[in-house]
Amino acid sequence: MLEIKNLHASIDDTPILRGIDLTIDNGQVHSLMGPNGSGKSTLAKVLAGDEAYEVTEGSILLDGVDLLELDPHERSAAGLFMAFQYPVEIPGVTMKYFLRTAINSVRKYREQPELDAYEFLSLVKERAAMVELDTDLLDRPVNGGFSGGEKKRAEIFQMAMLEPTACILDETDSGLDIDALRIVADGVNKMRGDNRSFLVITHYQRLLSYIVPDVVHVLVDGRIVRTGGKDLALELEEHGYAPIESEHAVDA
């Protein structure tokens, strides 16, 4: 369960998040929508612990653990995963090596035995099939020369490998064609389960026809201004963000 309470965060003394309250129960998928510049990606980065942002108020608990007390890599070990909107390249480091290091770092932190080469490769095979990822990609440098679709699929693959309890998808749909979108969504749907919560950040409703959310939130100017069921996304699709934005412009 991910509980965000009264979260305020700034970058260079400019407030971006201005009091976010959001609780995602295990087993639930919440979607966070909103116009450009509303703070959606900032929330993802603040959750993951990006040091460019300063949390000025509020709390973030993951299954009762105070994430604000943890460094980014510890948050990951504690069960938080963020699929990046723009995954970076790491030249010379193969995806396999990277992932094995990641998994074993996380397992060490969780006091689990490290995976040996055989166990690791079996897991790779199984999870790669789940997101229809060509395993040849795993012998290439991390995100090196990957197409947009390959990058996003690789993110979901990493998510499947690391088995997090809270998954943040930051505009995972951006730059995807319809086939890639379906594959990514299938992967996410296969991972939905009682012990896992999802926050799907997106600008468009499109992704939500594939990953059907339990709850939809609308973020405007760093605050959640509306919360509803999956129909809210359809409403936004039809009317755009403008009516909601003008409604809350006074507060901004």
């Binding site: 612990g49 460094d71 992932l99 770092s105």
Partner: peptide, 12 residues
Amino acid sequence: QIFYCNQRGISP
């Protein structure tokens, strides 16, 4: 790059 690794559980 470092943040990306951190997010996957790898220490700085």
